[in-house]
Structures are given as structure tokens and as C-alpha cells.
Design a protein around this nucleic acid. Sequence first.
DNA 1: ATGATAGTTAGCATTATGACTAAGCATCAT
DNA 2: ATGATGCTTAGTCATAATGCTAACTATCAT
Lengths: 113, 113
Amino acid sequence: MTKHHSDLSLLFHALADPTRRSILTQLAEKPARVTDLADPTGLRLPTVMRHLSVLEEAGLIATSKDGRVRTCAIVLEAMEPVRTWIDEQRAIWESRLDRLDAFVMDVMKERGK
Amino acid sequence: MTKHHSDLSLLFHALADPTRRSILTQLAEKPARVTDLADPTGLRLPTVMRHLSVLEEAGLIATSKDGRVRTCAIVLEAMEPVRTWIDEQRAIWESRLDRLDAFVMDVMKERGK
DNA sequence: ATGATAGTTAGCATTATGACTAAGCATCAT
DNA sequence: ATGATGCTTAGTCATAATGCTAACTATCAT
């Protein structure tokens, strides 16, 4: 595979893990500390740290440290490219329908002659 | 990790690979045979087959075989859960804002007294 | 200054992913 | 019936992903 992950690959990959998605859902409620995020997962801290860094590298969360506490917050806008990509696929698909329509119109014109 | 992938995990995982996304984009234009999909990737057939089965297991494509030719088509609706999930996160996030709004309203009412 | 708390780093084991080659099977055209 | 075509299967390999423990650092409370 490519060493160069596109933003989209990073995003989709980050979202492909249930633990990470549940972390995001929790963060959608409100920002939280690392430990608060680890608790409900039942996973060890280092494991959760890893998930958090995947999320952060994908731009899906932002974190800041105050004293010994790191606070994480969701970055909802980061999901936009996902929606955009899906919309693009739909647009391509619809343009195919348009072409079919055009083709049908041509055929009908042809028959009308 | 879990042996049991949720639909969402399957979907996001399938979409996380650039080759698979480009295959989907090609299929959004029009259905295609396995070889037609393999060509532009520069990958070998068995590799592409694997990508196709990932896409099919995620429900993102449907395939059918006629003689020795397998034709693949995109299943756009399959992407809906992705959009829905993202919308849900936004909804949660917005309900948090609502709560903040309510709080601010309260404060302002308080000050107006 | 001591101990508890919060997070971090390093290293390891297991499994999953993505690529390949080689060989096989089923059509289709001649 | 033979060869070409299109796909499929099996097996291999390298790398990445996910989990863990153990040990470490930095803060905060007393």
C-alpha cells in the first residue's frame, strides 16, 4: 500500500474502528479527559492513547494539556470531506443517468423522424 | 480487535483504501468487468479480486456473472449509513449547543431581573 | 517530601491487510 | 478440440494495526 495516506484514507480509517467511533460519540456530547475516554472502553490507557492519536492525526479531535490533564474535543468539520466524497460519487452516478436520459431523447428524436 | 465487524466498520474500512475508492468512482460512471476495473489500478487480478470482495462484503458493490465475465455495479445506497452516522454525531453536538443556548438564555434572564 | 493521579513511552505478541506468483477452472472462438 | 480469455484459488511475504505490560515523567495534594 501507499505510504502516503490521503486525508480521506486517514479519515475513513480512523472512523473504521468501533472504539474510535464511540470515543467520538462521547466527545460529541462534551469534551473529556483521556481517562474519562478510556473508562467506558474497558481498554488500557496506552491503547486508548493510540486511538486518540489516530483520531488526532485524522483531524477528528483536537487536544490540549493543562497541568497533567489532557482534554480532548471533537472537530466535527473534519468529517466534511467524507460527506463531500460520497456526494461526489452520487453526482457522478447521477450524471450517468443524465447521459442515459440524453441517449433516450436521441433515440426518440430518431424515431420521430 | 473484534472478530465481529459492524456494518459501519465494514463500510468505513472498505472506503479507507484509495484503490477501492477509485474502483467505486469508476463504477459510479458505469458498471464494469473485473478486468476493466483492474486495468487502471496497475494491480494484479487476484489483488483486485480481494478489493472487490471487500467492497462486496461491505455492500458497496453488487456483482453478477454471465458466462466467464463478472460484472460489478456500485450500490450507492450502501453509503447511507455513513452519512447517517455523521449526521448523528452532528445532532449530538448540536444538542450540546442547544443546552448551552438554554444556559445562556437562563443567565440572560437572570441578569435582566 | 511523599504519595497519589494523569498521562506518556517503549517494547512485545497477535492478527489483519495488501501485494505478489503460480496454478487451476470455466467459457468462448475457431 | 485447442488455444485464448476471464476469472478464481491457494499459498507466500512484508507491513501495519491493535492490544498488552512495565517503566517513566510530570503534576497535584498533604
